[in-house]
Nucleic acid binder design. Structure first.
Lengths: 253, 253
DNA sequence: AAGTGATTGTACCACCTGGTTAATTACTGG
DNA sequence: CCAGTAATTAACCAGGTGGTACAATCACTT
């Protein structure tokens, strides 16, 4: 195991600066290279833990298995993270952070609101599909009723950011009179999230019921397009105004 | 514990006919009242297990805890269900059955397609909200990648039934020229499911991020309405045809 | 070169888990 | 009333779990 330890030091050496600035050690890199590299070890553990927890959930996720996936020993997990829950919380934090950093990459040109909205939806759709681990963690958190969600703020931040983006597009669209008025950006964001999230979260049961067609490349592309159309239809068209026919039945108000 | 056993026998006596017809014992009720009431015991276990599994998941769900919730002993669980997984499978089966029976209650008048669609969506929305246990099980199954979903057929059946219903409404709508052509009922069903499911599955994290407003009575009603409008807008209006503006950007095709 | 404090390895533990053994009771048919 | 079977109980077990005690090892100071 000692030999392996050396290897992770080298392996993680490139990422060291990141972790160090994170920990406010912007000076010169102490402890370069050789043994004893706490930041790398922690990140190593964190990655292993993310894998395990996102695959198996909190309770099923085994500390021993995580330790095995690590280049270090179980002892280190407890040394750095205290206990299982502490580790799990850090994993969630990290996943959120990664997710947010990913989302930050998107830049939109609002001058064409319809195009911007399509692009936003497409990005959200694909980004969700890429971040399966994150989504699994959110699912797990929901089953636990968000018990471990210590950093609600971080989570709120992600969504707030997304809503702000929607808002920008929506306002531009209203100004240009391509979107109808009176909608809330949160509502729009909710719809996009719901469909993009559901697409990956319920993949297993959906495949079980209907086969994998929907999850082929074409199927996904088509679905993405369909979501775009749905949201845009909602933004551009008010079924209540134009057709009173359906509202003669007031049982659903 | 013996005294408790008597009580469940009495307690479950009313439901006995159900279970007996289920088990094809339509004759007279043997073993009435007194002790030794297998059907009641099994149902008792099943209910306890549903509670435990839907709250805690498969792995976290403890057989011992289930046994404690039961009026019987742990041994009985293994006697009737073999092992943990066997029990879990039966729980899923039962939940599906309950869900399907609930869905079967809905009767729609297709002569007004818009109204029918609104009613269907409202029903789905509310039914999902009521069947939280079922939804939790589906979530758990998705986390496990539907590993335990032995009765895929049953699950497929539920959805197929729902799709058939959508199809009926949609066709009527197309005939009456209130819905546009070229949409697939599966697609429509998917949208409705996605939003209604997401509403309850992601309640915890959503509350954590935005507070509970969305889940107040008013909030839910408004959301339901919003989902109806979204789907109807999609059915009535084609954003691709009317506005070519947004499609000048072809990066999202 | 000894000391110091942060890190790491080894071996271990109490506890809880799913699952079982074997004996006992309640009931059935003859 | 008795033999046989179905239902039920209580005690038990091996294995794995999260978590630790303790000592060794390292980087770095003095």
């Amino acid at each position: 195991m000692n030999s392996e330890l050396y290897s992770i030091c080298i392996h993680y050496a490139s990422g060291l600066n990141d972790t160090q600035t994170m920990l406010d050690q912007t000076k010169k890199p102490k402890r370069q290279g050789w043994k004893q590299n706490p930041e790398a070890v922690q990140e190593n553990i964190l990655n292993a833990a993310l894998e395990e927890f996102s695959q198996r959930g909190f309770a099923s996720g085994s500390i021993n298995v995580i330790a095995d996936k690590t280049a270090t020993s179980k002892r280190m997990i407890y040394y750095y993270f205290g206990d299982k829950e502490g580790l799990y919380r850090k994993v969630i934090d990290k996943a959120y952070q990664d997710m947010r950093e990913g989302e930050a990459k998107l830049n939109l040109d609002v001058s064409d609101p319809v195009a911007a909205m399509r692009k936003l939806i497409k990005f959200t759709f694909e980004h969700h599909a890429e971040q399966q681990d994150f989504i699994r963690l959110v699912m797990i958190e929901n089953i636990h009723r968000a018990k471990h969600l210590a950093s609600k703020e971080k989570f709120a931040e992600i969504n707030a950011l997304a809503i702000a983006r929607v808002n920008e597009i929506y306002n531009a669209g209203v100004t240009q009179q391509v979107f109808r008025t009176g909608l809330s950006p949160a509502q729009i964001h909710w719809q996009i999230s719901a469909m993009c999230f559901f697409n990956v979260s319920n993949k297993a049961t959906f495949s079980a019921a209907f086969g994998d067609d929907l999850f082929s490349h074409d199927g996904q592309q088509q679905l993405c397009r369909s979501i775009q159309n749905t949201v845009l239809a909602f933004l551009e068209y008010d079924p209540e105004q134009s057709e009173t026919r359906g509202l003669s039945d007031k049982t659903n108000s």
